[in-house]
Nucleic acid binder design. Sequence first.
DNA 1: AAACTGAGTTCCACAATATGGAACCATATG
DNA 2: CATATGGTTCCATATTGTGGAACTCAGTTT
Lengths: 268, 268
Amino acid sequence: MAGDGTIGKACDVLDQVAAFARPVRFGELLEHSDFPKATLYRFLQSLTNQGMLSYDPDRQTYAPGLRLVRLAHAAWTQSSLAPIARPFLDALSRETGETVHLAQLDSGQVLYVDKRNATQPVEMFSQAGKVGPAYCTGVGKAMMAHLEPDQLAKALSQQSFYRFTDKTLASEQLLVADLVAIRERGYAVDDEEHEPGIICVACPVLTEGGRMLGAISITGSTERMSFAQLQAWVPRVRRVADQIGAEAQSWRFPETRPNGNSDRMQGT
Amino acid sequence: MAGDGTIGKACDVLDQVAAFARPVRFGELLEHSDFPKATLYRFLQSLTNQGMLSYDPDRQTYAPGLRLVRLAHAAWTQSSLAPIARPFLDALSRETGETVHLAQLDSGQVLYVDKRNATQPVEMFSQAGKVGPAYCTGVGKAMMAHLEPDQLAKALSQQSFYRFTDKTLASEQLLVADLVAIRERGYAVDDEEHEPGIICVACPVLTEGGRMLGAISITGSTERMSFAQLQAWVPRVRRVADQIGAEAQSWRFPETRPNGNSDRMQGT
DNA sequence: AAACTGAGTTCCACAATATGGAACCATATG
DNA sequence: CATATGGTTCCATATTGTGGAACTCAGTTT
């Protein structure tokens, strides 16, 4: 993750702050940063001014700012598959009764953009925006299997290959072999590679041209079901993934004029 | 919103892109931008590289990128009141059966960070991250009423004073007068100032020191209830707002080490 | 009380970086 | 085929970011 000039550096700082999963003090950031004191300081200032970070004067801590939430709303609406996929996910979740995920790839990691939890009512951000490893999850592997060679190389270099379970594919060789197989058969499986007891089947969402957009998956637990049972859903998942891909291709945003106060919220 | 150097400009570009509520082409952005062609181009490049924007090669359009979603997840968790307020909002929503909002102020606008919809099941981002006007909503006025003079001045300058309804307080004078009253009585009302038929009562969330953190509100419609009925909830809203304020003050994040893969997501 | 410590903030000469006019290229359009 | 339009690249220039060092302001220690 090396620099696009100032912008790249600023983004690094944002990530730094976000990486602490709690508000951080200047000093703490300084320790974990490559920037000299004054430089880091100025970045924090500017980012805080811009609302990309928030500063708590009482505690003297920095945290990711609310402006990000506002921007993310736009991102989620516009450049994620979620709005398109929603009805399909609903249907899939209803039919299967299992947990359904919609994920996209972001800097080599799986970013969950939507989810249906079979049982409990949804909780907002607690699901969208979360990240996970790509090399040991169904959606992650499904997506990587359909990357262009150069993108794949980059993605591979970003994997940690930490051995979560003894079934984890903990090396590039093992992973690549699986990716080839996945590409051939059209879907990926996660057989307790990330968490013991958790299994999953996933299909990539592709454009007609073969460009990879994301992936969807159905997750189950070994306690409640066999792998074979889960695999029986694959054709259904395939179909839904294809539908989403097709929709995404033809999808056009309704015409709007620039400064869109256009999408308003009822309430006050 | 003038510049903190390069960072400020980059943020402006992000906002520009987000302001179109749809993917935009280079040329469209150029029209609405102050930057010369080459400069804007380089910004878009860098931001796209960084994942702050996403670029659709098929359509040649830019949109806010997924990295924002990831960062926003952190922002929402860390610097919004939502995690703290959640149980209180749940309770309030259950008791009243009405729509409940939690909002914070972001560059002079109301940013909704959480919501309870009495009737329907929640939909994630479709609620959090949305923005609204501050001068004509309950939460907006409740928050502005408790700003420091200089912050208030800034916020006032950012209001559009568009006349949504004939009850809208469409001038600074009217608004300021109301803010004084709100500060005295401790809560704000929105009597169809934003949308016809929509009424609301709101209380600010304050620290013990009086620092304004956000606001909560209960919204109703004139069809189903009278203003008096709604106002009967004020003491309850007040109490909840105070509780959230107190919590926020004492809240400490659990100790974590920097690079937090700490909050993981079950699933794959 | 004076000296110390360390976090946070400001300064400023220097150098790296962003700038933007103009030229260029590729794809639609008349 | 010519022309316009939208998008991309170049490069000399100067604006901007850089970071070492000096400073300020608590909170401690001697």
